[in-house]
């Protein structure tokens, strides 16, 4: 049916051009429009959470029902969710069977501080190990440019640690030698390369945005071209 494609495309066109225009129009009406749209976006995002939760729970229920490999982990999804929901709703998040006291950490907060935060930190800390193993595997001087990359990486890593001051003092009579070279590498060739990528990305963003605004690219709408 024509309206299933046309109306969304018209909306995209209208809001896309309005968003583009907002950057050039300082009138309070333009700012008010932006505020309303942002608020609407937050509200829609809130509703979308239900879709996500349904999807998540449905997937895990299927895994448990079919006893797929790793189905036991799916039970923890429900246990964790149930625990946090119960703690959050019961007694305004405070400890069960206790009168709420100002200044005392609630049970909900406790679970966040002592379960969620350490778990997040644990996963993040794996990065240190992975960087070491990735560096070991891939930093090989196969050719001249790889050698340059390797040397730059070594200098930058070394320049970031206080030990380099001692070595710099010993070798070059300047404690800041490695830090200085490290700064130069980061400030000039590294930044130049980043900016080059950023310029290309920015042009790509404009081109892609135009394709979406004018309805040339429609894959994001789902349901076929």
């Amino acid at each position: 049916m024509w309206y299933k494609r046309t109306i969304p495309l018209l909306l995209v066109l209208a809001f896309g051009l309005a968003g583009f225009g907002h950057d050039y129009v300082p009138h309070p009406a333009s700012n008010a429009f932006r505020e309303e749209v942002t608020t609407g976006f937050v509200i829609i995002g809130g509703f979308a959470l239900f879709i996500g939760a349904y999807s998540l729970f449905h997937m895990h229920i299927s895994r448990i029902r079919r006893k797929q490999p790793g189905w036991a982990y799916s039970i923890f999804v429900f246990l964790g969710a149930a625990l946090m929901v119960c703690l959050g709703l019961w007694n305004d998040g405070d400890w069960m069977f206790v009168d709420p006291q100002p200044g005392v950490v609630t049970s909900f907060q406790w679970c966040y501080d002592y379960i969620l935060v350490p778990c997040n930190a644990t996963i993040f800390s794996i990065l240190a190990f992975f960087i070491a193993s990735a560096a070991f595997r891939t930093f090989r001087a196969r050719n001249f440019s790889a050698l340059l990359l390797l040397a730059a990486a070594v200098v930058v890593m070394f320049g970031r640690v206080p030990v380099s001051e001692r070595v710099g003092q010993f070798l070059f009579d300047s404690p800041n030698a490695f830090a200085h070279v490290s700064e130069i590498l980061l400030n000039y060739p590294n930044l130049a390369a980043k900016r080059a990528i950023l310029l290309g990305v920015s042009l790509g963003v404009i081109s892609q945005s135009l394709r979406i605004i004018f309805g040339i690219e429609r894959t994001y709408m789902g349901g076929g071209d």
């Binding site: 829609i44 995002g45 979308a48 959470l49 239900f50 879709i51 996500g52 939760a53 999807s55 894959t219 994001y220 709408m221 789902g222 349901g223 076929g224």
Partner: peptide
């Protein structure tokens, strides 16, 4: 693997349409 609910919904539509095509 989706992170965001709206993207999840769109991805489902996209994959479903691709299967139909």
């Amino acid at each position: 693997m989706n992170y965001e609910p709206i993207v999840t919904a769109i991805s489902q539509e996209v994959v479903q349409q691709a299967c139909i095509e």
